[in-house]
């Protein structure tokens, strides 16, 4: 039912369809990169550096003679994949914490909420940056830092939802009939929360991608020679004058993906609000 309503809402928007197609193509080309990519993305050959687009190198080569198209395709796995990992871990943790906090109340709730207050008192980019700084630059540490900073935000929202659901008559009647707590949570509370969280997560995926590639751009995330869009921009920045092409490709990819996720998130939100009103 829920999914049907959402699907209907999505169908009527051309832009949503376009963004879905863009995301689909990018994800697919990332997933199939080992088969489809024309060249090895990490193969350095200095005699091929700064080549213009050709049949062998459709987008040309970078300062180390590596194929830009292949790097973009493999980069899609790193950029999108790590964003999806961050989001799914964040959501899982925040659903557990938020439900626990809202449903149990009392000391657990007080403790978790004070923890959230503490983390939310920091600007989130600063905290992410510093956690990465403490743990040391690497993609896995960026993922850890992003999860640590972001879960509180969702946990807060989920807790609020659980608090209001707890008082609804269908939950109360389940309680009166002696349904165990875990079953109430699984059957009555989670199904009402998850659609909203999916929307929030989609709306925020764009931001997560921006942060991950931003940190990689600073050299704190993905380490060379692994291809990633932010890291590619970092490599390319010294050649802005001589070869602006190197800047344009990865930047356009990031922009496209972020816009697509934002459009998709907007559409999902409208669809859900429409269903509820």
């Amino acid at each position: 039912m829920v999914l049907q309503g959402i699907a209907k809402g999505l169908y009527h928007r051309k832009l949503t369809i376009i963004s879905l197609i863009i995301l689909g193509v990018i994800m697919l080309s990332g997933a199939l990169a080992p088969v489809l990519a024309p060249n090895d993305p990490t193969l350095i050959s200095l005699e091929n550096k700064f080549l213009s687009p050709s049949i062998q190198f459709p987008f040309g080569t970078d300062h180390l003679g590596r194929c830009i198209l292949s790097r973009l395709m493999y980069g899609a796995i790193t950029s999108l994949g790590s964003a999806l990992v961050v989001m799914s871990v964040t959501i899982t943790i925040s659903i557990i914490m938020g439900t626990l906090s809202g449903y149990m109340g009392g000391r657990v709730d007080a403790f978790l909420m004070r923890l959230c207050d503490m983390i939310l008192a920091f600007p989130n980019l600063v905290l992410t940056l510093v956690i990465v700084g403490m743990l040391g630059p690497s993609l896995i540490n960026v993922i850890i830092a992003m999860v640590v900073v972001q879960w509180v935000w969702y946990a807060r929202i989920i807790r609020g939802m659980v608090l209001s659901l707890k008082e609804r008559s269908f939950v109360l009647s389940a309680k009166v009939t002696g349904t165990p707590d875990w079953l109430i949570i699984v059957r009555h509370i989670l199904p009402n929360i998850i659609p909203h969280i999916v929307v929030l997560a989609t709306l925020n995926l764009g931001m997560v991608i921006l942060h991950i590639s931003g940190l990689s751009f600073l050299g704190l995330g993905v380490q060379p020679p692994t291809p990633e869009w932010g890291a590619m921009l970092n490599d390319a920045k010294q050649f802005l004058r001589s070869d602006p092409r190197l800047i344009m490709f990865p930047g356009t990819m990031i922009l496209l993906v972020v816009i697509s996720f934002n459009l998709l998130g907007d559409a999902l939100r409208d669809a859900i609000e429409f269903r509820e009103s």
């Binding site: 931003g214 751009f217 602006p244 816009i259 934002n262």
Partner: peptide
């Protein structure tokens, strides 16, 4: 507003430098 909110600032900086300065 839509593009502005989706733009990676590290890329925008380079694009502005390229167009306006270079």
């Amino acid at each position: 507003a839509f593009i502005g909110a989706s733009m990676p600032s590290f890329w925008l900086g380079f694009v502005l430098v390229y167009i306006l300065s270079l």
